Amino acid sequence: MVTHDYRVLLTADIENCGGRTDAQQRTLQSGLISTIETAADRVQLDHGAWERQVGGDSLTVHLPAEPGPFVTIPLLLDQFLTELDVAIAAHNSRRSDPTWARMRMRLAVHVGPLQLDGAAGWPGQHAVQPARLRDSAPIRTALDTFRDADLALIVSREVFRDYVSQGPGRPRPSEFLEVAVAEKKQEYTAYLYVPHFDVHDMEIPESQPSSDTPSSPPRSIGSIKNRVKRGDILFAQGDINVAREPKGKKK
Protein backbone atom coordinates (compact mmCIF):
# COMPACT_ATOMS: atom_id res chain seq x y z
CA MET A 1 0.00 0.00 0.00
CA VAL A 2 1.38 3.39 -1.03
CA THR A 3 1.30 6.00 1.72
CA HIS A 4 1.68 9.75 1.49
CA ASP A 5 2.92 12.29 4.02
CA TYR A 6 2.07 15.98 3.73
CA ARG A 7 5.46 17.72 3.74
CA VAL A 8 7.19 20.98 2.96
CA LEU A 9 9.79 20.72 0.20
CA LEU A 10 12.69 23.10 -0.29
CA THR A 11 15.09 22.97 -3.23
CA ALA A 12 18.02 25.18 -4.19
CA ASP A 13 20.35 25.40 -7.17
CA ILE A 14 23.40 27.54 -7.96
CA GLU A 15 23.33 29.64 -11.12
CA ASN A 16 25.88 28.60 -13.75
CA CYS A 17 27.85 26.29 -11.47
CA GLY A 18 28.78 24.08 -14.43
CA GLY A 19 30.46 27.01 -16.13
CA ARG A 20 33.06 27.41 -13.36
CA THR A 21 36.41 25.70 -12.86
CA ASP A 22 36.58 22.41 -10.96
CA ALA A 23 37.97 24.18 -7.91
CA GLN A 24 35.26 26.83 -8.03
CA GLN A 25 32.55 24.20 -8.36
CA ARG A 26 33.86 22.47 -5.26
CA THR A 27 33.79 25.74 -3.32
CA LEU A 28 30.29 26.57 -4.59
CA GLN A 29 28.96 23.13 -3.63
CA SER A 30 30.31 23.64 -0.13
CA GLY A 31 28.85 27.14 -0.07
CA LEU A 32 25.41 25.89 -1.08
CA ILE A 33 25.25 23.54 1.90
CA SER A 34 26.89 25.88 4.39
CA THR A 35 24.72 28.92 3.60
CA ILE A 36 21.51 26.93 3.87
CA GLU A 37 22.59 25.26 7.11
CA THR A 38 23.77 28.60 8.54
CA ALA A 39 20.42 30.22 7.76
CA ALA A 40 18.58 27.26 9.28
CA ASP A 41 20.66 27.43 12.46
CA ARG A 42 19.99 31.15 12.84
CA VAL A 43 16.22 30.62 12.82
CA GLN A 44 16.36 27.37 14.83
CA LEU A 45 15.33 25.04 12.03
CA ASP A 46 16.77 21.58 12.67
CA HIS A 47 18.47 20.84 9.36
CA GLY A 48 19.82 17.61 10.85
CA ALA A 49 16.26 16.25 10.65
CA TRP A 50 15.87 17.08 6.96
CA GLU A 51 15.75 14.28 4.40
CA ARG A 52 18.06 15.26 1.54
CA GLN A 53 18.74 14.60 -2.10
CA VAL A 54 21.98 16.20 -3.31
CA GLY A 55 22.76 16.63 -6.99
CA GLY A 56 26.08 18.39 -7.45
CA ASP A 57 25.09 22.07 -7.48
CA SER A 58 21.57 21.45 -6.17
CA LEU A 59 19.98 20.40 -2.90
CA THR A 60 16.41 19.18 -2.33
CA VAL A 61 15.02 18.46 1.12
CA HIS A 62 11.73 17.64 2.71
CA LEU A 63 11.21 18.92 6.21
CA PRO A 64 9.88 16.90 9.17
CA ALA A 65 6.14 16.58 9.76
CA GLU A 66 6.49 18.57 12.99
CA PRO A 67 5.95 21.40 13.76
CA GLY A 68 3.91 21.42 10.53
CA PRO A 69 3.59 23.61 7.42
CA PHE A 70 1.67 26.43 9.13
CA VAL A 71 4.75 27.04 11.28
CA THR A 72 7.47 25.97 8.88
CA ILE A 73 6.47 27.78 5.67
CA PRO A 74 6.13 31.29 7.19
CA LEU A 75 9.47 30.74 8.91
CA LEU A 76 11.12 29.67 5.65
CA LEU A 77 9.74 32.57 3.63
CA ASP A 78 10.43 35.23 6.24
CA GLN A 79 13.31 34.75 8.67
CA PHE A 80 15.08 31.88 6.89
CA LEU A 81 15.01 33.68 3.55
CA THR A 82 16.45 36.81 5.16
CA GLU A 83 19.24 34.87 6.85
CA LEU A 84 19.99 32.94 3.66
CA ASP A 85 20.36 36.19 1.74
CA VAL A 86 22.81 37.41 4.41
CA ALA A 87 24.76 34.13 4.36
CA ILE A 88 25.11 34.23 0.57
CA ALA A 89 26.31 37.83 0.75
CA ALA A 90 28.92 36.77 3.32
CA HIS A 91 30.08 33.98 1.01
CA ASN A 92 30.31 36.41 -1.89
CA SER A 93 32.45 38.82 0.12
CA ARG A 94 35.33 36.33 0.43
CA ARG A 95 37.06 37.37 -2.78
CA SER A 96 40.55 36.66 -1.41
CA ASP A 97 39.87 32.91 -1.57
CA PRO A 98 41.75 31.59 -4.64
CA THR A 99 38.79 29.35 -5.54
CA TRP A 100 36.18 32.07 -4.96
CA ALA A 101 33.28 32.45 -7.35
CA ARG A 102 30.15 34.49 -6.84
CA MET A 103 27.20 32.37 -5.74
CA ARG A 104 23.69 33.19 -6.94
CA MET A 105 20.92 30.88 -5.84
CA ARG A 106 17.50 29.85 -7.15
CA LEU A 107 15.21 28.64 -4.38
CA ALA A 108 11.79 26.95 -4.62
CA VAL A 109 9.29 26.02 -1.91
CA HIS A 110 6.35 23.66 -2.35
CA VAL A 111 4.04 21.68 -0.09
CA GLY A 112 1.98 18.57 -0.74
CA PRO A 113 1.50 14.83 -0.18
CA LEU A 114 4.82 13.08 -0.67
CA GLN A 115 5.70 9.40 -1.08
CA LEU A 116 8.65 8.86 1.25
CA ASP A 117 9.27 5.16 0.57
CA GLY A 118 10.39 5.16 -3.08
CA ALA A 119 13.15 2.75 -4.13
CA ALA A 120 15.30 5.58 -5.53
CA GLY A 121 14.03 8.74 -3.90
CA TRP A 122 10.60 10.33 -3.55
CA PRO A 123 8.32 9.45 -6.48
CA GLY A 124 5.32 11.49 -7.48
CA GLN A 125 4.30 14.85 -8.90
CA HIS A 126 4.83 16.77 -5.67
CA ALA A 127 8.46 15.67 -5.48
CA VAL A 128 9.05 16.78 -9.07
CA GLN A 129 7.25 20.12 -9.05
CA PRO A 130 9.64 22.19 -6.90
CA ALA A 131 12.63 21.26 -9.05
CA ARG A 132 10.68 22.25 -12.17
CA LEU A 133 9.88 25.62 -10.60
CA ARG A 134 13.47 26.10 -9.43
CA ASP A 135 14.84 25.52 -12.94
CA SER A 136 12.10 27.39 -14.83
CA ALA A 137 12.45 30.33 -17.20
CA PRO A 138 10.82 32.95 -14.92
CA ILE A 139 13.24 32.51 -12.03
CA ARG A 140 16.21 32.38 -14.39
CA THR A 141 14.96 35.58 -16.00
CA ALA A 142 14.71 37.16 -12.55
CA LEU A 143 18.41 36.60 -11.87
CA ASP A 144 19.26 37.76 -15.40
CA THR A 145 17.22 40.93 -14.86
CA PHE A 146 18.43 41.81 -11.38
CA ARG A 147 22.17 41.27 -11.69
CA ASP A 148 22.86 42.62 -8.19
CA ALA A 149 20.58 40.01 -6.61
CA ASP A 150 22.15 36.92 -5.04
CA LEU A 151 18.88 35.06 -4.42
CA ALA A 152 15.54 34.49 -6.13
CA LEU A 153 12.57 32.60 -4.71
CA ILE A 154 9.69 30.87 -6.47
CA VAL A 155 6.81 29.24 -4.60
CA SER A 156 4.05 26.97 -5.81
CA ARG A 157 0.42 28.00 -6.10
CA GLU A 158 -0.35 25.88 -3.03
CA VAL A 159 2.21 27.71 -0.91
CA PHE A 160 1.02 31.12 -2.06
CA ARG A 161 -2.69 30.33 -1.74
CA ASP A 162 -2.64 28.57 1.63
CA TYR A 163 0.18 30.39 3.43
CA VAL A 164 1.45 33.60 1.80
CA SER A 165 -1.96 35.05 0.98
CA GLN A 166 -3.30 34.27 4.45
CA GLY A 167 -0.66 36.42 6.22
CA PRO A 168 0.65 38.02 8.26
CA GLY A 169 4.38 37.90 7.61
CA ARG A 170 6.95 38.72 5.01
CA PRO A 171 7.16 38.84 2.08
CA ARG A 172 3.72 40.34 1.56
CA PRO A 173 1.54 38.84 -1.20
CA SER A 174 1.90 42.03 -3.24
CA GLU A 175 5.68 41.52 -3.41
CA PHE A 176 5.25 38.33 -5.47
CA LEU A 177 4.69 38.15 -9.20
CA GLU A 178 2.38 35.42 -10.49
CA VAL A 179 4.00 33.55 -13.40
CA ALA A 180 3.14 30.63 -15.65
CA VAL A 181 5.75 27.88 -15.77
CA ALA A 182 5.97 25.31 -18.56
CA GLU A 183 8.59 22.62 -17.98
CA LYS A 184 8.81 19.15 -19.55
CA LYS A 185 5.19 19.11 -20.79
CA GLN A 186 3.90 20.24 -17.39
CA GLU A 187 2.38 23.62 -16.68
CA TYR A 188 2.20 25.29 -13.27
CA THR A 189 1.13 28.58 -11.78
CA ALA A 190 3.80 29.89 -9.43
CA TYR A 191 4.82 33.07 -7.61
CA LEU A 192 8.17 34.81 -7.89
CA TYR A 193 10.01 37.00 -5.37
CA VAL A 194 13.48 38.59 -5.36
CA PRO A 195 14.65 40.16 -2.07
CA HIS A 196 15.30 43.93 -2.39
CA PHE A 197 13.93 44.15 -5.94
CA ASP A 198 10.53 44.77 -7.51
CA VAL A 199 9.73 41.72 -9.64
CA HIS A 200 6.86 43.58 -11.31
CA ASP A 201 9.47 45.38 -13.42
CA MET A 202 10.52 42.15 -15.13
CA GLU A 203 10.04 41.58 -18.84
CA ILE A 204 9.59 37.84 -19.42
CA PRO A 205 9.80 36.54 -23.01
CA GLU A 206 6.98 34.67 -24.69
CA SER A 207 7.24 30.94 -25.44
CA GLN A 208 5.64 28.52 -27.85
CA PRO A 209 2.59 26.49 -26.67
CA SER A 210 3.29 23.11 -25.07
CA SER A 211 3.63 20.24 -27.56
CA ASP A 212 1.21 18.07 -25.58
CA THR A 213 -1.62 20.62 -25.90
CA PRO A 214 -1.60 21.67 -29.57
CA SER A 215 -5.19 22.89 -29.52
CA SER A 216 -4.62 25.30 -26.65
CA PRO A 217 -3.82 28.99 -27.29
CA PRO A 218 -0.19 30.12 -26.98
CA ARG A 219 0.93 30.56 -23.40
CA SER A 220 3.95 32.34 -22.03
CA ILE A 221 6.48 30.31 -20.09
CA GLY A 222 6.74 33.22 -17.73
CA SER A 223 3.70 35.28 -18.53
CA ILE A 224 2.92 38.05 -16.12
CA LYS A 225 -0.44 37.07 -14.71
CA ASN A 226 -0.92 40.18 -12.59
CA ARG A 227 0.85 43.24 -11.34
CA VAL A 228 -0.19 43.68 -7.74
CA LYS A 229 -0.35 47.01 -6.00
CA ARG A 230 1.71 47.24 -2.81
CA GLY A 231 -0.27 46.76 0.38
CA ASP A 232 -3.43 44.76 0.78
CA ILE A 233 -4.85 42.65 -2.03
CA LEU A 234 -8.36 41.36 -2.50
CA PHE A 235 -9.16 37.80 -3.51
CA ALA A 236 -12.38 36.91 -5.31
CA GLN A 237 -12.65 33.40 -6.73
CA GLY A 238 -8.89 33.21 -7.13
CA ASP A 239 -8.48 36.64 -8.75
CA ILE A 240 -6.36 39.49 -7.45
CA ASN A 241 -6.97 43.21 -7.74
CA VAL A 242 -4.06 44.54 -9.78
CA ALA A 243 -2.30 47.79 -10.51
CA ARG A 244 0.98 48.79 -12.16
CA GLU A 245 3.98 49.45 -9.92
CA PRO A 246 6.64 52.02 -10.75
CA LYS A 247 9.95 50.66 -11.99
CA GLY A 248 13.09 50.49 -9.89
CA LYS A 249 14.76 48.78 -6.99
CA LYS A 250 12.77 48.67 -3.80
CA LYS A 251 13.92 51.05 -1.10
Rank of each mutant, 00 (worst) to 15 (best):
A23F: 05
K229I: 07
Q186C: 09
D198E: 15
F160T: 06
K249A: 15
V179L: 09
V242E: 11
I204N: 00
P209M: 02
E206Y: 00
G124F: 04
D135G: 10
P67A: 06
V181E: 10
A149Y: 07
A149G: 09
V199K: 08
G56H: 08
D13E: 06
G167V: 01
H47D: 05
L81R: 09
R134G: 09
I233G: 01
Y191L: 05
L32Y: 06
S223H: 03
K250S: 08
G169M: 02
L153V: 05
Y163I: 01
Q29C: 13
L192Q: 04
A12G: 05
R20D: 08
P130Q: 06
R132E: 13
A101E: 14
G231I: 04
S223T: 07
R157G: 09
A12W: 00
L116I: 13
P64M: 07
E206K: 03
L28D: 12
V228Y: 05
S96L: 13
L114F: 02
R132L: 13
A108M: 03
D201A: 14
L192K: 06
M103Y: 12
D232K: 01
P130T: 07
Q125S: 11
D198Q: 10
V71E: 11
R219E: 11
Q166H: 03
L151G: 10
D41Y: 01
A40I: 02
H4K: 06
P67M: 02
L84P: 05
D97A: 10
A108C: 00
Q53S: 13
V54Y: 04
M202G: 03
D212I: 11
D57P: 13
R134S: 11
A131V: 15
G31L: 10
V61C: 15
E175F: 11
G238K: 00
I36L: 15
K225T: 10
R102G: 14
P209I: 02
V43T: 10
I139R: 12
T141A: 12
L177P: 04
R26T: 12
V181K: 03
R170M: 10
L84M: 06
A49P: 01
T99S: 14
K229F: 03
E66H: 09
Y193D: 00
A236C: 05
G167P: 01
E175V: 01
E203I: 12
R52K: 14
R106D: 08
D85C: 12
A142I: 05
D97G: 02
R147E: 14
P130D: 07
L143T: 08
K185P: 00
S58G: 15
S165L: 14
P168K: 08
R134A: 13
E15T: 10
V242K: 00
A12T: 07
D85V: 02
I221K: 05
Q237R: 13
K249N: 10
P195N: 07
W122A: 06
G121T: 01
T27E: 08
P173M: 11
A142C: 08
E187G: 15
I88T: 10
A40N: 03
I73L: 14
D46V: 05
N16Y: 06
L107I: 01
L114W: 03
Q53D: 14
I240M: 07
S34W: 12
G68S: 07
G68D: 07
V111R: 06
R134H: 01
V8G: 01
T11K: 02
T21H: 09
D85F: 03
A120T: 04
A180S: 15
R134L: 09
A108N: 03
P67N: 03
A89N: 15
F70A: 13
A131F: 13
Y193H: 15
L114C: 04
Y188L: 14
A182M: 11
P171H: 05
